[in-house]
Design a protein around this nucleic acid. Sequence first.
DNA 1: GGCCAGGCTAGCA
DNA 2: TGCTAGCATGGC
Length: 298
Amino acid sequence: MTRLELAPTGIYSFEETSRRLTQFEKSAYQERDGRLVRTLCIGAKPIAVELWWTGNALAVEIGEDLSPIEMEELTKILRRMFSLDVDLTPFYHRIDGDPDLGQLVRERRGLHVVLDASPYECLIKTIVSQQLNLSFAGTLIRRLIEISGERLSHRGEELLVFPTPAQIAKLSYEDLQQLQFNRRKAEYVIDLSRNVVDGSLDLGKLESLSDDEIVKKMLPLRGVGRWTIECLLLFGMGRPDLFPAADIGLRNALRKVYGTVEQPSEEEVRRLGEAWSPWRSYAVFYLWDYLSTTKKSS
DNA sequence: GGCCAGGCTAGCA
DNA sequence: TGCTAGCATGGC
């Protein structure tokens, strides 16, 4: 057995941060005895990790012994995924005086973005989610993992591991259509995975590129539009200054914040966003959270 | 029952 | 180059 404690940099609320995981990431995170349980891959080796908060650090427990190199890798993965090194102090200073966003940001103090385990996982989940309500999107993602992902036994329970590109590449379009994917979406997900497998798409190379370079590189891929790339940059790579101005959820959130009847246009949203640079990703993230935690009205 | 979902592509003008 | 129907189904 291995145990770690990872302290955050700056203000961090695990309560706020994990709330979203149990609400929107049910296919990846499960709650067991006050801990979050999920699978992760260290290199190619899948392991089950249990996570909880000690009061000032993220505690991690793994049911097996890891080598020092694996420990180092796991630490790196978790610090990145849970944004433990993202100090939000400058963001809070920037937003505190904002008459419209100030309050909703204060109410979520310490809420951090939790990244997907890899850019590939993020891309697949984002493509599946396009144009669907989040609840149904979650159902489709779970079904995809169930038919193609590996199983891992943990405390007498079976946990699912997010499939590798090779595992999804092996599926047929009809396999996914049977899960209620539409034909095109089935093609996007499988074709993209096949591109990763045959080496024509190297997602590992994205890390060294700028946001704009990544947009240029990814846009020609079928099924990948601007919104999808913005989500990849935000939730797959943790880039801090993304603003998906066309996003319907963001526009709904802003309509609610400003109490307007009509949704703001993409252009208006973009202009509003400029005030929150270079922290636009967190402004969007808090607005999305605001939208999903307040009742729908008008 | 109808319209909208944290979009995107292909086909048409 | 710009516009829009169609997608597959759940949720409200």
